[in-house]
Amino acid sequence: MNGDNSSSSPLIRVEGLRKSFGDHVVLRDIDFEVRPGEVVTIIGASGSGKSTLLRCINLLETPDAGHVWFHGDDLAAEHVDVNRLREKIGMVFQGFNLFNNMNVLDNCTLAPVTLRKMSKAEAEKVALEHLDSVGLSGFVRADVNTLSGGQKQRVAIARALCMQPDLMLFDEPTSALDPEIVGEVLEVMRALAAKGMTMVVVTHEMSFARNVSDEVVFMDQGVIAEKGAPEKMFTNPEMPRTREFLARYLA
């Protein structure tokens, strides 16, 4: 939906990324890029390396080789200040990972107050805006442990947005949710995409991949087997492996 941006230079460029856990090779020479405003979904079977690829982008996993170019810096280089670069990359996890020792508002203000040297009041004002945009303005003082899964995930999205990131990474954001509350999280993500946020989403929600994303990446056994526009990927994939995978989901 932001296809007009596709001519600009990429916001993030992954080059020759390799990662293995012991003898198990998870990523083999991944090349991939995301342009500003683009929504890229990564699909693929469990164990195909999609989560690891996402976690390599903000260095939660250290790649064995390759480069992750972001704002002209190589995140994968030694001694690079990843903390500063991560401030601009928001991440939403499958297991929410809200800070259990804080309430909803403090979850959102911790990073801005600590890293942006914002005053508490200023940070709270920003946080309230984002909590409002995910429909949780009534829960600001709530203990995070009392929230439902869908609410937790929306708080997690608001928390990431409070740092005003240039890029948002979603690692299977709806996989831990009951089917009936998946929708509320996808709705928030859809709205975020409509506002022009650059997003990389690892998901099993094929309707989201098809309707919201600008590009779909299919991963299989540590390589990008195929990528392209969602229409083409879902109606006429080239690779037999892609067809096989999608057939199981779209049946």
């Binding site: 903000n58 939660l60 903390n83 500063r84 670069l85 991560r86 401030e87 601009k88 990359i89 928001g90 991440m91 996890f93 297991g95 929410f96 990972n97 809200l98 800070f99 259990n100 911790l110 990073a111 600590t114 890293l115 997690a156 928390r159 990431a160 740092m163 990474l169």
Partner: peptide, 17 residues
Amino acid sequence: DEGQTEAARSLGLSQWQ
């Protein structure tokens, strides 16, 4: 849970923070 550290680091907090 390790996810707590990961979430904090993903926001840009240092190891110590």
